[in-house]
Nucleic acid binder design. Sequence first.
DNA 1: CTGTTAGCGCCTTCAT
DNA 2: ATGAAGGCGCTAACAG
Lengths: 303, 303
Amino acid sequence: MARATLERVEAAALALNYVPNRLAGTLAGGQSRQVAVVLPSLSNSVFADVLNGLETQLEQASHHPILGVSNYDPLHEERLVADLLSWRPAGLVIAPASSTEGTRRMLAGAGVPVVEIMDIDPAPIDMAVGLSQHAAGRAMAHYLVGRGYRRVAYVGHDISTDPRALTRKQGLERGLSEAEVTLTATVLLPGPSSVPLGREAVARLLADVPPGGLAVCFSNDDMAVGAMFHAMGVALKVPDDLALAGFNGLAIGQALPLPLTSVESRRVEIGNLAAKALLSRLEGETVARVQDVGFRLIPGATT
Amino acid sequence: MARATLERVEAAALALNYVPNRLAGTLAGGQSRQVAVVLPSLSNSVFADVLNGLETQLEQASHHPILGVSNYDPLHEERLVADLLSWRPAGLVIAPASSTEGTRRMLAGAGVPVVEIMDIDPAPIDMAVGLSQHAAGRAMAHYLVGRGYRRVAYVGHDISTDPRALTRKQGLERGLSEAEVTLTATVLLPGPSSVPLGREAVARLLADVPPGGLAVCFSNDDMAVGAMFHAMGVALKVPDDLALAGFNGLAIGQALPLPLTSVESRRVEIGNLAAKALLSRLEGETVARVQDVGFRLIPGATT
DNA sequence: CTGTTAGCGCCTTCAT
DNA sequence: ATGAAGGCGCTAACAG
């Protein structure tokens, strides 16, 4: 085509708001440029951060996430995976919610790169990006024991559905047992992790268990912040009467007058790396099956 | 087809993990079942909530969001809209970031339902779901004036890029001016709204402006929470020395020992309604051009 | 009601 | 280089 003609076509395209049809393009054999993303929740800011990281990297390569939220329901998750796969995405990123056998089969047979995120303890179907939740829990135990705590309680949101929170708790118990300490008490409340839930849960805990040298580990920082507010309300001294430790290293915990002891989990980085792993793989490059972003214990002023 | 054959086909489909190809289906004339979603940010929990509401409703109708995050950059937003539209979604939901003329043209000419969310003050291109940000700001002014405050300062994140925060501030000033009060001071810090940013911003404010009967309005609750932590740190009494008011009615603000004065913004509901409006429209029903979810002033203990 | 056929808009291959 | 043709996997509109 002549140069002038080309320009006229482009001008016309602009004027008519022409956008190429990627459905057709992809169907005809092109790369999809859509990436399925399955998350267990969006009410926990943890996954909003991960999604943020994912989206940022994907977009750099003109890819876009198609989103599904499973609500920690395995059957829901299975339906989602099937639904999203029907769009023939270039790849799939999933933070699994105790997946069914069917889900695993679909992922294994999807014929596109699959990245499991958040936990690297289980063997990955294809690739995994995250941290060892078990090691993180264990590290917290060692830290608390090292600080001299012998009475440790656990407070969490509904753990039966959140495999990673469960793994962390197991890591914690494992680490404690290595110092011959067992959990003094466990309080689990249904519903997603949140500030008000933590506040309520710690109130219940203290109804049964006296403070005084007690350290409480929470499933998430927002829960621990709720506990901190409760302590302020009833004039309990933190950490002398009651020590508090969270998980995830959220900004809110670190902004407290007493910075919260926690474990930094690098969520945006997980999103970034997961997207990069996927994109590299699409470029034909070889990518490590497991990428450990690590974690860092944040020794705060609450323990 | 015979019943038995049908069953054999279905069994085979299951065994082979067959998933129909929706690209082909849509290209051949079916409804797309993908909805483009353009948000300005994911680091603010406000949009995570909206997305949560959207996803929930869309999924009920087997629709899925394709996500784009503009980072409050109008040109970025324009590219995103073009990109997402190239997937021929069934509709588009956008929380605009001071959109360009080009963006508006594409939206107007997209040929699919478009829902603008969060603010209902500007005239909608197609449909709008949200609240009057101006009225919300004004209501806060009236409330503060009614409580006897005559010295009011404003502290926000970078407002030049966030049209809704700007509109709220204008509403606030308007409301104050109706009582012949003008803003004592304004502190704007770059970067997304966050707890640490609020903490820093209020510290700067107090370097210039003496507390003592001063009320500070924040662009978002997380900023106000940061200010609260600062006040605790320097032993300033809230609300006597320093009164604080946020915006959005986030859980964190309400869980403080002193519940934060704020304006509830019903973000999940906005997501829900936006999705429903879009889906109804796709069903051929008539939908109100503008849906006001309203807001509610939360009189807390910090003012 | 079942079975066939013509595209949807693009990419890829092959011929010119 | 440029152009024509085939087909991606479906849906819809038709014919039987």
